[in-house]
Simulated scan of single mutants.
Amino acid sequence: MAHDRSLDLFANRFELTRHVVILINEDPPPERILYLHGLGGNGKSLLLRHLEKRACLRTDRWPDIHDTPDTELLDRLTEHGHQVPVARIDFGARPAGENRPQEAFSALFMLKRQLAYHRIPELFPRSEVDR
């Protein structure tokens, strides 16, 4: 996968980034769905890519890292954390092939494919079609 340079330029979303990092590193982590909404064009998709690549890390050293200043938090987390599985759906995306996020059944299969990338297929019961 190509390096996304836009993520290198992403800045100043410390409060939300810290919120996501705290949720992921609570013990045990809460079972939550985060819903991000806003007007089109203000950076929601870039923010989600940023969170997915840089903030969705879990570490056993969280008590040592928790009080790190915002500007250093992600660097410290990257040193000691491991990636957690992430799946997301853009309900505003246009349908394309099998990906139809506005249709419930298709959206579930979109999530299933994303989680299978993280080797989490056992969360979904197999159907006769999958066998």
Rank of each mutant, 00 (worst) to 15 (best):
I33Q: 02
D90T: 01
E26N: 09
L23H: 07
H82S: 14
Q83H: 15
T68F: 09
N99P: 11
E52C: 10
A96C: 11
L34Q: 09
V21G: 11
P28M: 02
S6A: 07
A107Y: 05
P29W: 02
L16A: 05
L57R: 08
R113T: 09
L73K: 13
E122G: 10
W62D: 05
V20Y: 08
D75W: 03
K53H: 13
E79Q: 15
V84S: 06
E26C: 04
L39V: 12
V86Q: 10
E98A: 13
P30C: 00
L47F: 03
I120T: 14
P101Y: 04
T78Q: 15
I65E: 11
H3E: 05
R131T: 11
M110T: 04
R76F: 14
A93R: 10
V21R: 06
D27E: 07
L47A: 00
Q102W: 09
R131H: 13
I120M: 15
R49A: 09
G43V: 00
R61M: 15
K44V: 00
L108M: 11
G40F: 04
H50K: 00
P85W: 00
R49I: 01
D4R: 11
L123I: 06
L36D: 01
S45A: 02
L51G: 02
S106D: 00
T68D: 02
P121Q: 01
P29K: 01
R119K: 13
I33P: 07
R76L: 10
H80N: 14
T71A: 13
R58D: 01
R76V: 05
A11V: 12
I24W: 07
D60A: 12
R76C: 12
H80W: 14
P125R: 11
R119P: 04
H19Y: 10
D130P: 07
A2W: 12
A2F: 11
F91R: 04
E52G: 09
V21Y: 05
E15F: 06
A116R: 14
D130I: 02
D70C: 05
R5E: 09
D67A: 14
N99A: 15
R61Y: 15
P28R: 01
A2K: 15
R54L: 04
L51K: 06
T78N: 15
E15D: 06
E31D: 13
R18S: 04
R126N: 09
T68G: 09
R54F: 08
N12R: 07
G97A: 06
K112I: 05
W62G: 08
E122C: 07
H66G: 09
N42A: 01
N99K: 15
D67R: 15
V129K: 08
L48F: 09
K112E: 01
D64I: 11
H37M: 00
I65P: 14
D27S: 08
R13S: 06
L108T: 10
A104Q: 14
R119I: 02
V21D: 01
S45T: 13
R13N: 10
W62M: 05
F105C: 08
